[in-house]
Design a protein around this nucleic acid. Structure first.
Lengths: 133, 133
DNA sequence: GGAACATCTGAACAACTATGAAGGTATCAG
DNA sequence: CTGATACCTTCATAGTTGTTCAGATGTTCC
């Protein structure tokens, strides 16, 4: 983890009584639009129940064929294929071909962490929510 | 962190040579559709460059008025207001009214963590990417 | 070779999302 | 009270997204 001074994502104390200072601080530290776009795109990939189910299935199984993924997640094979292409281009999953089958697996531990933290957020914001798994 | 046996989000070793066992495991452990939906909704909130910029600005400033948020993020005040309503209903931000101003601030440390992990993912998947902040 | 299988691709379409315009509410200054 | 300020809401719309259908690709078996 980088030090707070060179890492805009690290928290730092701010005097809550001085408006102008906070505005200046935020204006100086906010990343360029392109960086915000890339972060948003990362979340966009995970912003679909089908893709979340695919990721969770791969997380449990370690590796699955497209057909198996479809039956486990309840998605059609075509929908699975489209989603997997997106996950592939986002470097969330990797694949290997075996005969006419294609085995997919998670390619990034960050995604597992994102799901765990998101689950904690859901539980925090709605403690009465049904089991998340 | 819960133990692997009662936490589907925790990794566990699987014999990569047995297809049927992995399918059964995934089918048993995958959360119900509603849980996947809630997770996806959480990511959807963060899947917009404007909202990411709002969150990053609040992260740097600690607390900002709507007008200040608009100028810092480059969004219109209307767009800001729309986004803030969404962030509010997702319990990502909280607000307090002071006279005719409304001060917004982050309300959940999970969101900071999500942004940090997403940044790491972006850097991992594209090491040549421009500075993220 | 041909048939069956597993997956991918492209186009069409419905559903959703973000944004801006216009108008509304509440607060403060004079 | 009047006007200005700060923010919110409703509505309409252009753009995006996920799904399905039809067909294409590549593989295995006979």
């Amino acid at each position: 983890m980088p030090s707070p001074t060179d890492d805009p994502l690290a928290a730092a104390p701010v005097d809550p009584t001085d408006d102008a200072a906070r505005i200046a601080r935020a204006a100086a530290e906010i990343p360029d639009p392109d960086a915000a776009l890339r972060l948003a795109e990362t979340f966009q990939v995970l912003a679909d129940p089908g893709r979340v189910r695919i990721i969770l299935a791969l997380h449990s199984a370690g590796e699955l064929r497209v057909g198996a993924l479809a039956s486990v997640t309840g998605l059609s094979e075509t929908a699975c294929s489209h989603s997997l292409r997106l996950l592939r281009s986002a470097r969330v999953v990797r694949f290997r071909k075996v005969g006419r089958s294609v085995y997919y697996a998670l390619d990034d531990d960050h995604v597992r962490t994102l799901l765990e933290v998101a689950r904690d957020h859901v539980l925090h914001r709605d403690p009465a929510a049904p089991e998340l798994g």
